[in-house]
Deep mutational scan, measured.
Amino acid sequence: TGYYDVLGVKPDASDNELKKAYRKMALKFHPDKNPDGAEQFKQISQAYEVLSDEKKRQIYDQ
């Protein structure tokens, strides 16, 4: 599964769309709200870390 799929956004998503999707998913799977969501929360955080950084995103998109 790709990072875009993890966040539920298209590859041409804007920074604002990425942030909005990340916040929505992070709230849904945060371990405090969803004890079984810890692994998914890590994936969401990693996806956002890469896609929100312009240089990392360019490398990922290659």
Rank of each mutant, 00 (worst) to 15 (best):
P35M: 06
V50N: 04
A47E: 01
P11A: 08
N16K: 13
K55E: 09
R57N: 03
A13W: 01
L18Y: 01
D12P: 03
Q43G: 04
D12S: 10
D32P: 07
E39Y: 10
L18A: 01
L51W: 00
A38G: 09
V6W: 07
A38T: 06
S14T: 14
S14P: 05
N34C: 11
D61P: 06
E54M: 13
K10H: 10
F41S: 02
L7A: 00
F41P: 00
Y48L: 03
Q62K: 11
F41G: 00
P35C: 09
G37L: 11
S45Q: 15
Q43Y: 12
K33S: 12
P11F: 12
A38Y: 11
F29E: 00
H30A: 11
D36F: 10
A47M: 00
D36N: 12
P35D: 04
K55P: 04
D15I: 15
Y60C: 05
N34M: 07
P11S: 09
R23L: 15
I59H: 11
P31Y: 06
D36E: 12
K42C: 10
V6K: 03
D32F: 08
D32H: 07
Y3Q: 02
K20L: 13
K24S: 11
T1E: 08
K33T: 14
D12T: 12
P35K: 08
R57V: 03
M25N: 04
N34W: 08
Y60Q: 05
D15S: 14
I59P: 03
D12G: 12
Q40Y: 13
Y48A: 02
E54C: 14
R57E: 02
A47G: 02
Y60H: 03
N34K: 04
A38L: 11
D53H: 05
Y3R: 01
S52N: 05
M25H: 04
L7Y: 00
D53V: 08
K28G: 05
K19L: 15
Q46V: 13
S52M: 13
H30K: 07
L51H: 00
D5M: 10
I59L: 12
K28N: 08
Q43K: 14
Q62A: 13
Q46C: 12
A21N: 01
K10Y: 07
K10Q: 08
K55Q: 09
Q43P: 02
L51P: 02
G8Q: 06
L18W: 00
A26F: 15
T1D: 07
K28C: 12
S52K: 08
Q43H: 08
F29D: 00
I44A: 04
K24D: 12
P35Q: 07
Q46G: 05
Y22F: 14
V9K: 00
Y48V: 01
I59T: 10
S45L: 15
D61I: 06
T1K: 13
D53Y: 05
L51G: 02
A21Q: 04
K55I: 10
A26S: 10
S45F: 11
Q62R: 12
Q62F: 08
Q43A: 13
A13N: 01
L27F: 09
G37W: 13
Q46F: 11
S14L: 04
M25A: 09
V6I: 15
N34Y: 08
E17W: 03
L51N: 03
R57H: 03
T1Q: 13
K19S: 09
Q46W: 12
F29Q: 03
D5F: 10
K10G: 10
P11Y: 08
P31A: 09
P35Y: 02
N16V: 12
E49S: 11
D12C: 15
R57C: 05
G8F: 04
K28Q: 10
K28S: 06
G37R: 07
K55G: 08
D15N: 14
Q40V: 12
K42Q: 08
Y3I: 04
Q58S: 11
E49V: 06
S14R: 05
E39I: 10
